[in-house]
Design a protein around this nucleic acid. Structure first.
Length: 561
RNA sequence: GCGCCGUUAGCUCAAUUGGAUAGAGCGUUGGUCUACGGAACCAAAGGCUAGGGAUUCGAGUUCCUUACGGCGCACCA
């Protein structure tokens, strides 16, 4: 039940709509004051009465019922308490009934959200900087699906540009087939790095020629390029599967090359294109931005051009309601330009384009640099985290079956959770200490809590579930009921703000609340049979919500650890 | 120089989008266990929310301004 709407429905304030009342409802700082509060200050001018008097008047007129158990006026706030058993019955039974769908919604039915994330560059291994876009995008993908949207995960491959000419030139010069087969993506990347370090004029010319050969369909150049591409995709596929990330489309930059002329024509038709310093640009001076370069002076397309073509292709192909780009804030200007150009072209869906910007990752001694060898590879971070989890597991729980799988869930979870726990806009200074932290506000704590709950439930498998009978609920129990009841709204808020961290925060908060409940309230040996059933149901509802939350983040939930 | 973003406890971060006494974790100090998993729980210390101004009944949150830091600013992606 939507309590805010319910309260708003039952309150009558002259000249104020129900929506305004519902929007004004807040949560008091302390549960002892109430569960919801209406600050009456803003109505004072309208009603020509003091906020205190308004609150008191409203309190006197409000009749309590099975949903709202008490109303009180305190210093201009009108505080409401929800009937505890009523809320518990509603929330717990709903969670137990809906199970893996608890928190889901059909609010997105019939709507499509395209999500561009992770976006691998061919021949470039993932470093720690690729973690954010991959796990943020992956989480948003699952969150939108959970809310009933059709999410389309798009991996916008970096598979076009002169760098691939360089790569082939380097391979022809120094590489050999066996080395690349065995060394995989890192061997390819090493060739590319070496080329950049040693390149001469002559070699650069060679690279341009090889790129031309790729474009003109030369079979040897394309055979090589496709080999590099499949090695890259096999490499990222392994990482994606460990991170529980999926895509529906791998259309890369090269895919859009033949769709560029139509976009250029549209720009010309709208009279937006003009020549500047030999290049074709859209002038954005009126909007305080530098020109958007569509074609270079040599007539070639740019990254921006392909992005523009891709946007039109996605609109046509998916008819999206939102199109998200999960890309670092470094590219703020680029997306502002891109979206503005689409708007200037008269496309109403320009407003549906969203740059989901996140913060930058640096190392403790400065920015990453592949050339200087200052780089942290993503697979190394994941492996070390899983190794650490395995070592702790071997020590704490040597008898446990399936330890490898559990170590994987715990180790990967810690890396993913670490990347999703803070507001996405925050910069991150990477350190192994932080990335491999299993203490405090971490997924490990949440997973441990789940395992604890599962362990209790296993002991109670023959106890029938509570069915709404009156129980004298204590503060710990009620806090936990409220935490579980907050989960569905948290998912919606996370989607609205493109902020999976809200779900991660909820996980830790709910786990803390559960652990307090667990310490204070006996479950298996509860004082009465009704209480035992109630606490079992509450434990199961909590585990359900936590499991759904971690799953949305892409984190596994071991039954034991 | 211009634009965007950030700045909250010693450290890393929250704060229901303008509401009541700004909360967690780590670290520090001191506690809890013959009950369901101690990877737990409780408590203490720690704050002029970077500085200044404005709007408002009410500001960490909005606006202006200063400082510090990050990012970006024409044919790379």
């Amino acid at each position: 039940m939507d309590h805010k709407a319910y309260i708003a429905e039952r309150l009558k304030i002259e000249g104020v709509t129900k929506e305004e009342i519902a929007d004004s409802l807040a949560v008091p700082p302390d549960t002892s004051l109430g569960d919801y509060a209406l600050p009456c200050f803003k109505f004072a001018k309208l009603l020509r009465r003091s906020p205190v008097a308004i609150a008191e008047g409203l309190a006197a007129d409000f009749k309590t019922d099975g949903v709202i158990s008490s109303v009180s006026a305190v210093n201009g706030y009108l505080n409401f308490k929800i009937d505890r058993t009523g809320l518990a019955e509603e929330v717990i039974l709903k969670a137990l009934r809906e199970k893996c769908a608890y928190g889901a919604s059909d609010m997105g039915a019939g709507k499509t959200v395209c999500i561009d994330y992770s976006s691998v560059n061919i021949a470039k291994p993932f470093h720690i900087g690729h973690l954010s876009t991959t796990v943020l995008g992956g989480a948003l993908y699952r969150i939108f699906n959970f809310l009933g949207y059709r999410a389309v995960g798009i991996n916008h491959l970096g598979d076009y540009g002169t760098q691939f000419g360089k790569l082939i030139a380097a391979y022809k010069r120094w590489g050999d087939r066996e080395e690349v087969e065995n060394g995989g993506i890192h061997a390819i990347n090493d060739l590319y790095v070496r080329f950049n370090n040693e390149a001469t004029e002559e070699m650069e010319a060679e690279a341009r020629e090889y790129f031309r050969l790729i474009e003109s369909g030369d079979s040897e150049a394309n055979e090589l390029f496709n080999r590099f591409k499949s090695i890259t995709l096999a490499y990222v596929e392994k990482i994606y599967s460990r991170l529980n990330v999926q895509f529906d489309s791998y259309c890369g930059e090269s895919f859009y090359i033949d769709k560029i002329p139509a976009v250029i024509d549209a720009l010309k038709e709208k009279n937006l294109l003009k020549e500047s310093r030999g290049a074709q640009v859209v002038d954005l001076d009126a909007y305080g931005m530098p020109p958007f370069i569509v074609l270079r002076s040599d007539g070639a397309s740019l990254y921006a051009t392909r992005d523009l073509a891709a946007a039109f292709y996605r609109k046509k192909t998916y008819d999206f309601d939102k199109c998200l780009y999960v890309v670092a804030y470094q590219q703020n200007l680029h997306f502002n330009q891109l979206f503005k150009v689409i708007e200037l072209m008269g496309e109403p869906w320009a407003k549906d384009m969203v740059h989901v910007a996140y913060g930058m990752v640096s190392l403790e001694d400065g920015a990453m640099s592949t050339r200087k060898g200052k780089v942290v590879w993503l697979e190394d971070v994941i492996s070390r985290s899983v190794e650490k989890a395995a070592a702790i597991l071997a020590e704490k729980n040597p008898e446990l079956a399936g330890r490898d799988d559990i170590a994987e869930q715990v180790g990967v979870g810690a890396v993913v959770f670490g990347a999703l726990y803070n507001n996405k806009i925050k910069d991150i200074v990477f350190s192994y200490d932080k990335a491999l932290n299993f203490d405090g506000e971490t997924s490990v704590y949440v997973q441990y809590t789940c395992a604890r709950a599962a362990s209790v439930l296993a002991k109670l498998k023959d106890t029938p579930l509570w069915n709404g009978e009156e129980v004298g609920m204590n503060a710990r129990e009620f806090e936990l009921v409220k935490a579980v009841s907050d989960f569905p709204d948290t998912v919606k808020a996370a989607a609205k703000n493109y902020e999976p961290s809200m779900i991660a925060r909820w996980c830790v908060d709910a786990a803390q609340t559960f652990n307090k409940f667990y310490i204070d309230c006996r479950i298996v040996n509860a004082e009465t049979e009704t209480l035992r059933r109630f606490r079992k149901a509450l434990t199961e509802a909590t585990l359900t919500a936590l499991t759904n939350a971690l799953t949305l983040l892409g984190i596994g939930v071991p039954e034991k650890m």
